[in-house]
Design a protein around this nucleic acid. Sequence first.
DNA 1: ACGGTTATTCTGAGTTATGC
DNA 2: GCATAACTCAGAATAACCGT
Length: 419
Amino acid sequence: MARQTYRVVGRNIDTLRVNGHGPLGEGVLETLLALQDEAVAQRDALKQRRRDEARVVTPWQLDGQPLLIAPHGANQGMWQVLLFCPAARVSIGSGQLNGITVQVILSSSFLWQHGYRGAWDKTQTLLDELGSFTYQPSEVHLCADIAGKSADTLHDADFVRLGHVTRWRLNDAMVLDIVDREATPEDHSTNELIVRYRQAETVSFSLASPHSSVVYDKPREIRTHSHDKVWFGDVWEANGWDRRQPVIRVEMRYEREVLHEMGVETMAQLWEMLDSLWQYSTRKWLRHTIPTHDKNRSRWPTTAWWKTVQGVTFERADACPGQRDKVRQFHEQRMISTILGYVESWVAWKAHEQGVIEGFDLYDALVGIFDQADDHYSHDATTFLKQVEDKRRKIGYAKDKEAAAKQRKLGMLADEPAS
DNA sequence: ACGGTTATTCTGAGTTATGC
DNA sequence: GCATAACTCAGAATAACCGT
């Protein structure tokens, strides 16, 4: 019997969110706010329904489409201005909180149609018209579409991952519904029946965490109602899809915290690290395996299907798995304010439970905490000093790792031919 | 007045990997 | 084979200011 072959029919960044630090251009905010006023006036002229959908055209464009301004900001005040177009959604604020003045979310179709680099180049050209920013990736979803395996054959117990137990979830997550334009009328009717009663199966891992993953099934029979999604089938077909094989999408999601730990602070670093991210996620963080009797799950062999997933490349084929290094730095001011914040909350709760304690000041609060320390430490059979020693080791370890990372980076630079 | 916004840091609990 | 190291995750906290 011929061995089942799997084919990578698509790979891309499917979601990209980028922060921009830096000042807005002269008069840009004024222009935008004036346009926003127009949108507000338009909204107020509308009666009841769809009022919030009022939009006014701005002078800026992305991918040939004008940016439209909404009559409101976004996210309860962090962003004063909200701009829309099919390719992206741009939020603009004053940057007073943490220096971030602009945040852009690129749409999936934009990213697929131009490739992630092309889409970003266009976006950056637009953003550079608004002000002078330095860009930092905030959220990235890497995905690969693999043809030749049906999601029915996936079992949660086969997935080995660091940390926590896998969780299955049945839901109707984003399932692409694409129709074959060449489909004959009778094909269409059979497809329709199957699709209607088919349930999409999604495996999700650590969904709420900074690093998460989703593995989901695309129905074998693909149909669509909206023509703007038809190109998706074309992308797969260009990569050898026969328009019949089942396709499973593996998606790895990275939020700011993980990117930070991986050393991704700029767009250039993001492109450079894409493959390291993917290698980390598919080799170390999550694997699909054939279970054996070995109690050590890390020794379970990887399936051929997952090896295909591991073999997906974005920029370069020789990447090593990235490493997540907890970034440890002594930020004394922040530590003090956090400690004091905790003490304040503790006293606030105490006062809530026991009534207001007259003349209870910081000193008394710290004494109160001191009184609880014995209980706390004896519970874990340790002492304050032991814990401090422990922390000192950890800090030392972090420093060693930092040095090692630096060493690796230097090594990589040395390997690269001077262009 | 209050709740919510983003990035970052720390901690404890729980699980897996690894070194001797 | 066992003790310890390493890792993940969830949930605290901070900053300054906007919208309801």
